[in-house]
Each structure stands twice: as structure tokens, then as C-alpha cells.
């Protein structure tokens, strides 16, 4: 289950970043310090329930948002827009992942919300760090809600 979830999660991540931001996942490093990163989460309910979390440096968020929004450079992206795009990417990755995991089931996703990145987090079911051609990010999945 965990192996399949990991493969589905990576597929969803690669697909969303490629299509929406023209960004490529280049490698999976062992660990990156994520303190101070922009952090978003989406909760889901359905056949499975839980939460997906996405964290990235603000610089990465601005790069991704620039392509998403059709701006010429990341300098044209406001902090609010970077958060909005990071939220939408979290929503898309979560939806894409769940559709692969349970294609015959209906899921309800919450609106993406930011959360304090420096607060201690419970151990997720699945977590990965990725380097991108435009920065880096961390994605984590819990199949039961973190409270």
C-alpha cells in the first residue's frame, strides 16, 4: 500500500508541476531543512480520509507561481499570489493522487490553507523531499487526519 501510494504521489506531483508550472522534478534528496518555508495543507474525506501537506521555499513558490500565472519573472509575483498558487498546486496534487488511488470513489477536498511551517508535525504516512529545476519542495500525506 505504502509503495503504491508513494508511486501515485510522485506521479501526481510530477504531472501537476509539469503541466501547470513547466517545472521538472530532478531528484529526490535525502533531506532538506524546511524551516521558514511556505506551507499549505488540504484535507480530504471519502473512502480514505486524511490530509496532504506541501512545503516549499518562498523563492520556489514565486518561480512556480510566475509560470502558473503567465508572468515574465518571479519578481512580478506578490506574496499573496505565491500563497494562492501554492494552495492550488496542493489541491491539484491531492486530487490527482486520490483519483489514481481510488478512481471509483468520490472525495471531498477542503479549501487549501496555509499552516505554520515551523510547528512540530506528527509523523506522516508518506513524506518526500524533491529537488526541482526551479527550487525544492516537500510533500507529505497522512491517511488519517493530523490533529
Amino acid at each position: 500500500m505504502a509503495e503504491r501510494s508513494g508511486a501515485d504521489l510522485e506521479f501526481a506531483l510530477r504531472q501537476v508541476l509539469d503541466i501547470m508550472c513547466m517545472a521538472r522534478v530532478t531528484e529526490e534528496p535525502e533531506h532538506i531543512a524546511t524551516a521558514g518555508w511556505l506551507a499549505m495543507r488540504v484535507e480530504f474525506r471519502g473512502a480514505s480520509h486524511g490530509e496532504m501537506r506541501l512545503r516549499m521555499p518562498e523563492e520556489t513558490a514565486c518561480h512556480l507561481a510566475a509560470t502558473f500565472l503567465g508572468r515574465r519573472s518571479s519578481g512580478e509575483v506578490t506574496a499573496t499570489e505565491a500563497v494562492q498558487v501554492a494552495g492550488e498546486l496542493t489541491n491539484m496534487i491531492c486530487g490527482c493522487f486520490l483519483s489514481r488511488l481510488e478512481s471509483a470513489q468520490i472525495f471531498e477536498l477542503s479549501a487549501p490553507r496555509p499552516y505554520p511551517p515551523d510547528t512540530p508535525q506528527p509523523q506522516p504516512s508518506l513524506a518526500r523531499h524533491y529537488r526541482l529545476d526551479k527550487g525544492s519542495l516537500y510533500v507529505a500525506l497522512a491517511l488519517t487526519p493530523w490533529r
Binding site: M92, G95, C96
Partner: peptide, 24 residues
């Protein structure tokens, strides 16, 4: 929508939507 599950797509078509585009 991000939700591309078969059940949802069928339901939406029955409700009269002309097309369904999955995000991304």
C-alpha cells in the same frame, strides 16, 4: 476539477454538464 473519479464524472454528466476537464 481535481476530482476525476469515474463516479463523479458520471454524476456531473447526468446533471447536464457538457464537458469535464481534470486539473491539472
Amino acid at each position: 476539477s481535481t476530482d476525476t473519479t469515474q463516479t463523479r464524472v458520471l454524476r456531473i454528466r447526468e446533471m447536464g454538464a457538457q464537458g469535464y476537464i481534470s486539473k491539472p
